[in-house]
């Protein structure tokens, strides 16, 4: 059985029913390219090609077999035996794709929304009802903040965006003009990595600190970026802050920090977190309502005490 619980035959069949038409449409692709397209290893692809050499339709005259072969490490099909296009999407495949698309919070009139609507066209008629029914069983629609689909499209189209942004350093929201590069979600929090035009540098923006983004008509040529965006609060810490948790909260903190959580007497635990963002730190500690206590350094203890005092006033 596959990890999905389906039979190996099922997975293999749908791979092979895609393989023949794919090669038929893309004659002469290298063995490695075809294997990559199918998400399998080179050896596995060669095994599949061996099997296909025996596939055909009765009465199995020479011209009745699929003629797929490798020559000079390139794959060709001469006879596809009417396997000229893959089968339509199954209901489960359609649901998986629609659910993935929902991650980006499609709006009412954007490209993602219209793409999802068109998905039903590539399902067999008998699968549409099941597609709609199964769609209710996989729910990601509330996961992302609004603005994801707008920003995704701006990234794809290389369009400059503007938005109001609230930083940890300033008291008021500032208007930002940004060339969007990448969207990513880390621990349930969405971020936009982009080139801030006014500051002439690559910056990271939290989507929940952003007003509704406006996509301008201005396009940009993608810049050479610094590579994979650094995650917030992971690698750029200037100083570690130690936080202690009470026994009742400890199991939940262990789930998040794993082996990084250190055990203390009476069931308490402590962890180190980055201290480079005071606003994040105080907000995080306050969110435990007294079950978390900063134990060092002194400036961090004072910061949390000040933030708690401000909430009392």
């Amino acid at each position: 059985m596959t990890p999905e619980g389906r039979t190996d035959v099922h997975e293999r069949l749908r791979r092979l029913l895609f393989l023949v038409p794919f090669v038929s449409r893309n004659q002469g692709r290298s063995v490695d390219e075809v294997a990559k397209e199918l998400g399998i290893k080179r050896d596995e692809l060669l095994e599949e090609l061996d099997l296909l050499a025996f596939v055909g339709r009765p009465p199995f005259q020479p011209d009745d077999f699929v003629d797929i072969y490798v020559e000079d490490d390139k794959v060709y099909v001469d006879l596809d035996q009417r396997l000229s296009a893959p089968p339509r999407l199954t209901a489960a495949a359609g649901v998986a794709l629609a659910a993935a698309a929902a991650l980006l919070k499609p709006g009412h009139s954007d490209a993602l929304k219209s793409a999802i609507e068109k998905l039903e066209q590539v399902l067999p008629a008998h699968a549409v009802k099941r597609f709609r029914e199964m769609g209710k069983r996989l729910d990601l629609t509330l996961e992302g903040p609004t603005g994801l689909a707008t920003l995704s499209q701006a990234i794809v189209e290389h369009r400059v965006v503007t938005f109001d942004y609230l930083t940890s350093a300033t008291a008021h929201a500032e208007r930002r003009k940004v060339e969007p590069i990448e969207l990513f979600s880390h621990r349930g929090q969405w971020y936009l990595s982009g080139f801030d035009v006014a500051r002439q540098s690559e910056r990271l923006f939290r989507l929940d600190r952003m007003g509704a983004p406006d996509v301008t008509g201005e396009t940009f040529a993608p810049r050479a970026t610094s590579g994979r965006t650094s995650l917030p609060g992971v690698s750029q810490s200037v100083q570690k802050v130690t936080v202690r948790f009470e026994a009742a909260t400890a199991p939940y903190i262990r789930e998040r920090f794993g082996v990084e959580a250190r055990g203390l007497p009476e069931g308490r635990i402590e962890v180190d977190v980055p201290g480079d963002n005071v606003r994040w730190l105080t907000g995080w500690v306050l969110s435990f309502g007294g079950a978390a206590t900063v134990t060092s350094p002194d400036w961090a203890i004072r910061s949390v005490a000040d933030a708690a005092k401000a909430s009392l006033e």
């Binding site: 893959p86 999407l89 495949a93 659910a99 993935a100 996989l138």
Partner: peptide
């Protein structure tokens, strides 16, 4: 349903 999703992506790009 990662396998379903991978197949769906291949097919929409076919």
């Amino acid at each position: 349903g990662s396998q379903d999703l991978a197949h769906a992506l291949r097919k929409i790009g076919f």
